[in-house]
Amino acid sequence: MADHNDLGDIGEQMAADHLLKKGYQILARNYVYLKGEVDIIARIENTIVIVEVKTRSTPDFGDPQDFLKPAQIKRLVETAHHFVEELEEEDLEVRFDIVGIIKNRAGVKVEHLEDAFYHF
């Protein structure tokens, strides 16, 4: 496995740990539907939280969360919609978050952006 894949896996685990510490329940990781994949699907109270994790080893090229493109957002929304439909629960809110992680020799920085974007 390539180093960048290892870093991504480490970042996803760090994001899951961060969410658990904040009281979230992890419902799924790497949930796939058609061509879309959601890194983490979590729940807090009546809110389903769709989490995209962006991990980088350096902030030199911008914040990790700035790398989310419109096409990827569209796939996230479609995949999230499928997941929520399968839950068959009423009165659920859905929120899209980004957890940006920078991990390098200097340490680790975790930034959790709630309501990072609105679905369309």
Rank of each mutant, 00 (worst) to 15 (best):
I44A: 08
A28S: 13
T79I: 02
V110C: 12
D63M: 06
D97W: 01
E114V: 13
Q65L: 15
T47D: 04
G36M: 03
F61V: 10
K35L: 04
H18V: 03
Q72P: 12
E12P: 01
A28Q: 05
L76I: 14
K69N: 08
V99Y: 01
E88V: 01
K21N: 14
P64W: 00
Q65P: 04
I73Q: 09
R75G: 03
V84G: 04
G36W: 02
N46C: 03
T47F: 03
K109D: 10
V51Q: 05
I101K: 07
K54W: 01
V49L: 01
H112G: 04
L19I: 05
F117S: 10
L34Q: 15
E52S: 12
V110N: 13
P59Y: 10
K54Q: 04
E52F: 00
I40D: 10
I44L: 14
E45P: 05
I102C: 09
G36C: 05
A28I: 00
D39N: 05
K21F: 04
I50R: 14
K109F: 15
H119I: 03
I41G: 03
Q13L: 03
E12Q: 04
V99N: 10
T55F: 01
R105S: 14
G107W: 04
I48P: 11
A15G: 09
L68H: 03
Q25C: 06
N104M: 06
K69W: 00
K54N: 08
G62R: 11
T47S: 14
R95C: 09
Q65V: 09
P64Q: 12
E111K: 12
Q72W: 04
I73Y: 05
H81N: 12
E111H: 09
L34E: 14
H81S: 12
A15R: 07
A28H: 00
S57A: 14
F61I: 08
E89C: 12
F117N: 06
E86T: 05
Y118R: 14
K109W: 09
G107H: 00
T79L: 05
D66C: 07
A28T: 01
L34A: 13
E114C: 02
A116N: 05
F96E: 06
D115V: 02
K35C: 05
T47G: 06
A116L: 04
H81Y: 06
K74L: 03
E111T: 10
G62C: 09
L87W: 02
P70C: 08
D115R: 10
L87P: 13
N104A: 06
P59K: 10
I101V: 08
F61Q: 15
E12R: 00
L27P: 07
K21S: 06
E111L: 08
K35V: 12
T79S: 14
Y24F: 12
V38N: 07
L27C: 02
A116V: 03
A16K: 10
L20D: 08
I101S: 13
P70L: 00
V108D: 13
M14Y: 08
I44P: 07
V32R: 09
L76H: 06
F67M: 14
D63A: 03
E85T: 10
K109H: 15
